[in-house]
Computed example of a mutant assay.
Amino acid sequence: MNEPSASAHTEVHASPDVVYTLVSDLPGMSALTDELARGSWLDGVGEAAVGVRFRGHNKIAWRRWSTTSTVTDADPGRRFAFEVSSVAGIPVSRWQYDIEATVNGCRVVEQTWDRRPSWFRPFANLVTGVRDRADHNRRNMERTLVRLKAAAEAASG
C-alpha cells in the first residue's frame, strides 16, 4: 500500500481493547469526529466485522453528504479499517486505526488514503467545500485523537 495522504497519532493511557471498542463503535465515533455527523450499520448488522457495511452521514458547516463504507479490518485491540465509497459506488478513501500496546497503554495511529479518481475530485471538493483534503483530514485527525484519548482514558478510570 502506498503512503497515506494524511496521518496522526497519539499515546493513550488505556488498553488497546478500550481504544478499539471506541473506534469501532460507529454511532459513538460521531461524537469524536468533526465530519461524521452520524453513522449507521447496514444490512441488519450492529457491530464491526470484516465485510460489514455502514452508511456515513457527513457534514461540514451547511454541506451534507453520505458515503457507504465496508469494514476491511476488524482486529480487536489492533486495527480497525474501512474503505469508503460515494453512494454511487465511486472509491473515496481508506481509513485505518492501528493500535499498538505500550507500557502505559497504547499508541494509536489514524491514517487515510485518498482513493478518489482525478475526474471525481472537483465534484467531491464542491460537495464538501474542501480543496486540500490531505491537510483538512490531518487537522481533523489531530482533533479526533484528542477526543479519543480523553474518552478512552475516562472509560479506563
Rank of each mutant, 00 (worst) to 15 (best):
S5V: 01
N137A: 11
A124C: 01
V109Q: 06
V146E: 15
A154G: 11
N58C: 13
T102C: 13
A37C: 02
N58R: 08
A134N: 11
H13E: 07
R78H: 08
A81H: 02
M29K: 04
L32E: 10
T128G: 12
R143W: 00
P76E: 13
E83V: 08
P27C: 01
R53Y: 09
R115M: 06
P122W: 07
S93C: 07
T128M: 13
R138C: 04
T102Y: 15
P16D: 06
A151Q: 11
W119G: 03
G77V: 12
P27K: 01
R64K: 14
R143F: 00
S66M: 02
P4G: 13
L126C: 07
V71C: 04
D25Y: 09
H9V: 02
T68C: 08
D98M: 04
T144G: 06
R38V: 06
N58L: 14
R115D: 14
S15K: 06
S93R: 00
V127K: 01
S66I: 00
R63K: 15
R55S: 13
P91Q: 05
H136E: 13
W41Y: 14
T68A: 03
A81C: 05
P76H: 10
D43M: 05
T70I: 09
R63Y: 08
V19L: 13
I90A: 05
I90T: 15
H9A: 14
G89I: 01
Y20N: 02
S118V: 07
A31T: 12
R94K: 12
T70V: 14
V92Q: 03
Q111F: 02
L42I: 12
D25W: 06
V71A: 07
A155P: 02
N2Q: 12
G44Y: 07
W62F: 15
A74H: 00
N58E: 13
D132V: 09
T102G: 11
D132M: 09
D135F: 13
G157M: 09
V71G: 04
E153H: 08
M29V: 12
S93V: 03
A81E: 09
A81D: 01
L22N: 03
R55N: 09
G46I: 02
R143E: 08
R107K: 12
A155F: 12
V92L: 11
W65C: 07
F120C: 08
T10H: 09
V71L: 01
S69K: 01
A37D: 00
R147L: 11
K149Q: 11
G129L: 04
S86V: 02
S24A: 10
R78F: 04
W62I: 09
D114H: 10
E100R: 15
P16F: 11
N104I: 06
A48Y: 10
P16C: 05
T102L: 13
D17S: 11
L32N: 01
N140F: 04
R147V: 00
S5H: 12
N58W: 11
R107S: 11
V50M: 14
N58D: 11
A134R: 04
E100D: 15
G129Y: 04
D43L: 03
I99C: 13
G44A: 10
T33Y: 10
D135I: 10
D43C: 01
N140K: 03
